[in-house]
């Protein structure tokens, strides 16, 4: 606690120095106009839509709301969304740690190419990502005939949805870890090795504790996107009710059928997930900042 206090008082001193500097202060009306504009913008584009989701969802009462959520098609959509996330997130976690480790701690040829490749899913439109899989695994695609002959279903089935989800959530963990691991350098790992640690010991006792908050942050973002993804999944889904519809796809279908209350009920569930994600993210940020301060004080 005292550590935090010392830190805070330093921060206040720093703040006073900054506010005395004329270059960083503005006359009152400019400041208030800017603040008002920001608040207006935020409420128009964030708070009002969020509130709409919930009011529309409950427009026909709580009965309709829960009926919409317990509808078999809705339940299967929720289940499929969770399956996709539960597979995609751990895979991307393992991949992200491995990639960030390689990129941050080693020098090798083609490193910048690897970084570019990791960023690819950010650059490509999700619809294209979905179409890529249709072109590869679709019946008219490269492996289409072989897959059909051997009775493998990839697209228009769950594997396709999982693949598309993995693709679009690929960079989150790696992108979060690379700058962090680069900043930390490799001295601590080297010290551990010199002191006789095995590879795994070094990873579990030195590397992982150092990156844990960044890793968690990446996983949270990855999970949020995995559950919310629409474009790529829509292309490979086939929209079979109760079988290959995820939550975002289910919302669209209900909306198109004029089933507004049900559409917003499922949408509110997604919004709740988003809010939960935000809360977790804030908690993680706060924890990691606290850790950083404590380490500084030591």
């Amino acid at each position: 606690m005292s550590a935090t206090n010392t830190h805070l008082s330093q921060y206040q001193k720093y703040n006073q120095r900054v506010s005395r500097n004329r270059a960083t202060s503005e006359v009152a009306w400019v400041r208030y106009t800017l603040i008002a504009a920001t608040l207006l913008f935020l409420s128009l584009f964030l708070f009002v839509p969020l509130a709409t989701v919930f009011t529309e969802a409950f427009r026909k009462g709580a009965g309709t709301y829960f009926a919409a959520l317990s509808d078999p098609d809705a339940l299967s959509a929720i289940k499929l969304t969770l399956i996709a996330a539960v597979i995609a997130v751990p895979l991307n976690l393992v991949f992200g740690v491995a990639a960030a480790w390689a990129i941050a701690k080693f020098e090798f040829k083609g490193k910048s190419l690897l970084i570019t490749l990791i960023d690819l899913p950010f650059a490509v439109s999700p619809v294209i990502a979905g179409l890529i899989y249709v072109l590869i695994f679709g019946m008219q695609g490269w492996f289409g005939e072989w897959l059909t002959d051997h009775d493998f279903k990839i697209i228009f089935a769950i594997p396709g949805i999982v693949l598309a989800t993995i693709f679009v959530t690929f960079p989150f963990v790696a992108r979060e870890l690379i700058p962090l691991m680069q900043a930390q350098g490799k001295e601590e790992e080297e010290a551990a090795l010199v002191l006789g640690a095995s590879g795994w010991q070094m990873f579990w006792r030195v590397t992982l504790p150092n990156i844990k908050w960044g890793l968690l942050y990446g996983v949270i973002l990855c999970n949020a996107r995995a559950m919310g993804e629409f474009g790529a999944v829509s292309v490979v889904s086939g929209h079979i009710r109760g079988l290959t519809n995820t939550m975002p796809l289910h919302v669209e279908i209900l909306y198109n059928e004029y089933n507004y209350a049900a559409a917003f009920a499922v949408a509110s569930l997604l919004a709740l997930l988003a809010l939960l994600t935000l809360a977790l993210k804030t908690y993680v940020e706060w924890q990691s900042a606290k850790d950083a301060i404590e380490i500084e004080q030591e």
């Binding site: 019946m139 008219q140 695609g141 228009f156 929209h239 009710r241 079988l243």
Partner: peptide, 20 residues
């Protein structure tokens, strides 16, 4: 009996691409 609904041209395209 499972159902898939959508814009008709898009639905036909999916069947061509392998929707069973």
């Amino acid at each position: 009996v499972n159902q898939s609904h959508g814009g008709s041209t898009k639905q036909a395209r999916s069947v061509v691409d392998g929707l069973q």
